[in-house]
Design a protein around this nucleic acid. Structure first.
Length: 466
RNA sequence: GGUGCCAUCGCCAAGUGGUAAGGCCGCAGCCUGCAAAGCUGCUAUCCCCAGUUCAAAUCUGGGUGGCACCUCCA
């Protein structure tokens, strides 16, 4: 398979370090607030990547961290008059709940910063020992960026000399303006952890490096992980700094491949809290089905910036509906999952840097051919089995069409309304039998007022929520 | 200011040198008591200018217009 490496800025053939095995690390959320659509996009992209790697025969070890030590968390806890743990547990649970709704599988490992402090101490100590880090008079520990000749090579950044001088003069005890904190000492009663360096809190970047060393890295390997991913904004400074720490503290490079997903904007504007509640996933999920959101958010290539708007989402849903309608036509038939030509083609397009558009085009073509065949040859036993295998493959690799098709089309309709609709459909059938079309059409119009579309099929009259 | 990305049909969106995928919407037809669903057919020369080439949406240069990052951020 091929993936675009955002550091080398080129599509590269993917070759794992260890035959048949892949390690994937993705920067997860800082749990101090509700997840927004951007978190969803990132989680979905890497969920898809993990599925495609698996489908290619790799045994995937996927780690996505939970950042549960952060100044923003402390601030939130203070504001809400709650403990740190109450805050982080609450938002971690919410994150898991919402991701499950989107069909995002749980990673194999979900390391937390609070559980990885020892690994951080170890890395910081190594950096101090090798003079890549220094301790200031006040007890803070900084990474010395001037000690790393490869610093800024990951993000292809050029340090501005003027800016450099200005910053050093204006700030603190840092040797270089670009130096970043590994350990921030705490001298008062605010939240802190005991460490060999005194009371304090870790810097953000060291958390990820430490978690990778602890959970994924093999000491003798050239790269700590095969693939490192995250949002496009993380390349600098977060990933640059992570890479520098790992490079200087260990004998390996942080990652062989870097993947960064594009940003989500709302109606053409960058997401911000002032724009309103469609920003949060929990609010989006009140209005839209999780799988519809999954299909919509994954429908555009992962590296492109994504512009979220309701009209596009509803158009996108129509495409997902087609998968479910075909599923409905074949509902209840048993089959064994078989390898199909369609499946091979689908995996091929997805393996080309997750070319989702080409994949969706293949799916549409498959659906169209299947409907045509089923229209002309209602029996076609073997063909049906093959089609079911195709659908099952789409479910497995893309996570589309995972629900019961009848329930999919009836979501958001309460039991009372369902009963009413079924009763009206019965009445309409009677009228139709009696060739009383005026009545049957009137009933259809009435059903429509509930936002329900009905269709007469070989399997009887079926209905869908519009 | 620095660095980088992008610009394809009304909308969404593939396609990195060989003569424009797919979806939505629209129009016509088949099917249907009529619909809906499904199926079939029809609809773009790729922001502008110049260049390289037998050949460019795809490469180069120059414009124009969006966007991102520059130490909080998926």
């Amino acid at each position: 398979m091929h993936i675009y490496d955002s550091v080398q800025k080129a599509k590269r053939e993917f070759v794992s370090q260890e035959e048949g095995k892949v390690s994937l690390y993705v920067c997860g959320p800082t749990v101090y607030d509700d997840a927004h659509l951007g978190h969803a996009k990132s989680a979905l992209v890497f969920d898809l990547l993990a599925r495609v790697l698996s489908a290619n025969g790799y045994e995937v070890t996927y780690a996505r961290n939970i950042t549960d030590i952060d100044d923003k968390i402390i601030k939130k806890a203070a504001e809400a008059n709650k403990s740190i743990k109450e805050i982080t547990d609450f938002y971690t649970d919410a994150y898991h709940f919402e991701m499950a709704k989107l069909g995002v599988a749980r990673p194999n490992i979900e390391p937390k910063a609070t559980e990885s402090l020892e690994a951080m101490f170890e890395l910081i100590q190594k950096l101090l020992d090798s003079s890549h880090a220094y301790k200031t008079d006040s007890g803070d520990i900084y990474f010395d960026t001037s000690s790393d000749s490869d610093y800024l090579k990951l993000s292809h950044r050029v340090q501005d000399e003027n800016e450099k001088l200005q910053r050093v003069e204006s700030s603190s005890e840092k040797k270089n303006s670009a130096d970043f904190a590994l350990w921030k000492s705490v001298h008062d009663e605010s939240v802190s952890f005991d460490s060999p360096f005194g009371k304090g809190r870790p810097g953000w970047h060291i958390e990820c490096s430490a978690m990778i060393e602890k959970h994924l890295a093999k000491k003798e390997a050239r790269f700590a992980v095969d693939i490192h991913g995250g949002g496009a904004d993380l390349l600098f400074p977060h990933h640059e700094n992570e890479a520098a720490q790992t490079r200087c503290a260990t004998n390996h490079t942080l990652a062989n491949y870097w993947i960064h997903n594009g940003f989500v904007n709302i109606d053409g504007e960058k997401m911000s809290k002032s724009l309103g509640n469609s920003f949060f996933l929990r609010d989006a999920l009140k209005v839209y089905d999780g799988e519809v959101l999954r299909f919509y958010l994954l429908g555009t290539h992962y590296r492109a910036n994504f512009n979220f708007n309701e009209e596009d989402l509803l158009n996108s849903k129509k495409r997902l509906d087609k998968i479910y309608r075909l599923k409905k036509r074949l509902f209840g038939l048993t089959h064994e999952n078989q390898k199909t030509a369609f499946g091979d083609e689908l995996l091929k397009t997805l393996s080309d840097d997750l070319n989702i558009s080409a994949s969706l085009a293949l799916i549409d073509e498959m659906i169209s051919v299947a409907n045509e065949k089923l229209d002309s040859d209602a029996k076609a036993k073997e063909f049906k089995k093959e089609t079911l295998s195709n659908l099952a493959y789409i479910e497995k690799v893309l996570g589309f069409g995972v629900k019961n098709p009848y329930e999919y089309f009836q979501q958001g309709v309460d039991e009372e309304t369902k009963a009413k609709i079924n009763s009206l459909i019965l009445q309409r059938s009677e009228a139709k039998k009696a060739k009383d079309f005026a009545t049957s059409d009137a009933i259809r119009d009435e059903i429509l007022t509930y936002g329900i579309n009905i269709m007469d099929t070989a399997q009887g009259t079926l209905w869908e929520k519009i």
